[in-house]
Amino acid sequence: MNLLVRLGAWSLGSMQRLGRGSLFLLAVLWRLPGALVQFRLLLGQLYSVGVLTVQIIVVSALSVGMVLGLQGYNTLVDFNAEASLGQVVALSLVRELGPVLTALLFAGRAGSALTAEIGLMKVTEQISAMEMMAVDPLRRVVAPRFLAGVLSMPLLAALFSAVGVFGGYLAGVGLLGVDGGAYWSQMQAKVDFYGDVMNGVVKSVVFGWVATWIAVFEGYDAPPTNEGVSRATTRTVVHTAFAVLALDFVLTAIMFGN
């Protein structure tokens, strides 16, 4: 009985949050054209959301690519098919690991920072002060951050995949002696630009919207206390991870499920 009540309360609460989040998203979308005009603001946010995330993306992609190269080689060599290593590495990265891992890393690096930043602006009454100065905080604070996140994600994901493929090359060709020509030619033979690369890009675009949406909403919706902001920051990372993984399954089923 009690459990049912709690379940009900939880469902209602979640629905309410989703509703508020959707209204918030609409309000932000309405202000996006304005954000495009404020080029300097967008530039600053592209720096903190995009540029500052490049480091972790490159390092992670290189290591993921190298591990894929090593593990793929160990499996393929049993079938005398190590020439297909390039194809294995590239397909894994372009279709799945690039967009998904980028979104997860993005949530940890840029998403949590966005939430904390906006939340702290609420705690220190900066948002309130802006409203009192007749400046719309959704336009001035949220919209440029949202746009920067949406624009950065596909670029970061493409970077992840490209660096990862290079990492696989380092491990497979550099360390294990797979033929370099075969690595690239097998890859090119099997990776389709529209079917694989573009679908990966579509995924990263979707993830970019969702991850940034969650991050800015959690920040804007956080209770204006230190505790509220720290909880919101955690929620951003957790919810983004859930949302990205669930959406990835759905998108994969639609795109590659045939």
Binding site: G44, T124, E125, Q126, S128, A129, E131, M132, A134
Partner: peptide, 20 residues
């Protein structure tokens, strides 16, 4: 309301300066 607020100033308890 926004027009009216342009004619109001407010000093918040913490100052509420934009820290960036």
């Amino acid at each position: 309301l926004f027009e009216l607020r342009k004619r109001m100033g407010m000093m918040f308890q913490s100052g509420a300066l934009f820290n960036d």
